[in-house]
Design a protein around this nucleic acid. Structure first.
Length: 202
DNA sequence: CGCCTTTGACCGGCGC
DNA sequence: GCGCCGGTCAAAGGCG
């Protein structure tokens, strides 16, 4: 998959983005915002990379944690304000997303990944998610969780995984884009997500 | 009672 | 062809 590093619009200068990342597989027009020298992308394949995150609803409500976006690269810096975003070609999901009906070729769906520093795995983005799986990940002691948006007709999926090396870092990978309004207004994390979508060439 | 998590089984792709 | 591996299904139970 392709990965890009993007700096969240923390407010001020967004101009200094020079991309040092590249997209692995397919280069489609995507965005890479990189700020400051961040580390190299997750070195290897997706094994250590993406994980699933939950944006669940009820669980996270009671106690909020502030998640700050940061970069991790399991090596050096784990406290930058950079987000790694993987973006693919536009859309993806809904029409055939991952499921192929007879004779259809599988289509790669774009994935959007970012890392956050948070004590809880579950970030609430305002959508409702239902967990449908959990698997152990190689090289990681923490399992990866798989979630799906419960909105009817919305096939957006999400994965969340915590890094072994830096327990404070949670990697969230989204697959597809929501085509319906957010069900529950939450904190401004939602806005960040929205901006990501704006940047996306859909 | 409805919605959600849990968990092992299952499946398709890929490498050997 | 077999086994690994990442991803998904579905039954059963939990919780508000």
């Amino acid at each position: 998959m392709e990965k890009f590093q993007m700096l969240f619009p923390s407010s001020s200068s967004s101009s200094s983005a020079h991309h040092q990342y590249y997209d692995d597989d397919h280069h489609h027009n995507s965005i890479n915002f990189l700020s400051s020298s961040s580390s190299p992308p997750s070195s290897t394949s997706m094994n250590d990379g993406p994980s699933m995150m939950t944006m669940g609803s009820s669980a996270a409500d009671h106690d909020y944690h502030h998640h700050q976006i940061s970069t991790n690269n399991d090596d050096d810096h784990h406290q930058e304000q950079v987000v790694t975003v993987a973006m693919g070609p536009g859309a993806a999901d809904q029409g055939d997303g991952g499921k192929k009906k007879k004779g259809e070729k599988k289509v790669k769906k774009p994935r959007y990944a970012f890392q956050t520093r948070s004590q809880v795995d579950i970030l609430d983005d305002g959508y409702r998610w239902r967990k449908y799986g959990q698997k152990a990940v190689k090289n990681n002691k923490f399992p990866r969780s798989y979630y799906r948006c419960t909105y009817q007709g919305c096939n957006v999926k999400k994965q969340v995984q915590r890094l072994t090396k830096d327990e404070g870092v949670v990697v969230t990978t989204y697959e597809g884009a929501h085509t319906h309004p957010i069900e529950r207004p939450s904190d401004n994390f939602e806005h960040i997500l929205n901006q990501m979508q704006i940047y996306t060439p859909f």
